Amino acid sequence: MAIPAANDGDLSPSTEQGFEHNLGMANPHEPHFFKPLLPGFQSGVIRTSLSLFTIPLAFFSKHIEGKTNQKTWKLRSDASDQTWEVIQEDRTLTRGWKDFTTAHDLQIGDLVIFKHEGDMVFHVTPFGPSCCEIQYTHPHIIKEEADAGDADDNEISKS
């Protein structure tokens, strides 16, 4: 991606706006945060050092704390039309979080980006260890067909 050049090394207001647009800066009305998935990210256990999914303090303080009494987050993704309800306790995602991670086959080392769309609705975009967005293609249908194919292959190789 080319970064627009400024005259004499000075960024004019119009150049700054172009710079932000070209880099795809986040809309301030839909704040984002990202989180790498570390060991224990599925557990949702509160107050266990390093073994839970915590919301970054800066994001929580600025966009969540004191802004709403609602403790249920609604998580959406491009992988499914389903919306998952996840409970927020303090700065931790608990009940429902494991269901979301299982449905998306999230693993240690993946990274997730949460975009707050308002009313405690978040669009979640997962990235794999390749640093690329994880692409889903009807995972349940493909998995069932692959499993059936593997079973047939195993039976053939055993005979």
Rank of each mutant, 00 (worst) to 15 (best):
E117N: 15
I142M: 08
S49K: 05
T83W: 07
R91V: 07
F114A: 02
S159Q: 09
T15E: 13
C131I: 07
K71L: 01
P4R: 15
C131R: 13
P31R: 06
S43Y: 11
I64K: 00
G149C: 03
D90C: 04
Q42A: 11
T48D: 03
K115L: 10
A146Q: 02
E20D: 10
H29A: 14
Q135I: 14
F60G: 03
A146D: 03
E144H: 07
I142W: 04
R91F: 04
G24P: 08
Q88L: 05
L111G: 00
Q107R: 05
F19V: 13
A5W: 05
D81N: 05
D99Y: 11
P4T: 13
Q88V: 07
G109F: 05
P129K: 11
D153I: 00
E144T: 11
E144M: 08
I134L: 14
K71Q: 07
W84N: 08
P4W: 13
T48F: 06
A2G: 13
I141N: 06
E133G: 01
K67S: 06
F100H: 07
I108S: 04
S157E: 09
V45N: 10
T101A: 14
D119K: 15
H32A: 08
N154W: 01
L23H: 09
L93I: 01
L75R: 01
V124H: 02
A151N: 10
V86I: 07
E144D: 10
I87S: 09
H123T: 02
E145G: 00
F100L: 06
L23N: 08
L52R: 01
M120G: 10
P4G: 13
K74H: 11
T48R: 08
W97C: 01
G9I: 14
I46N: 03
F122G: 00
I55C: 02
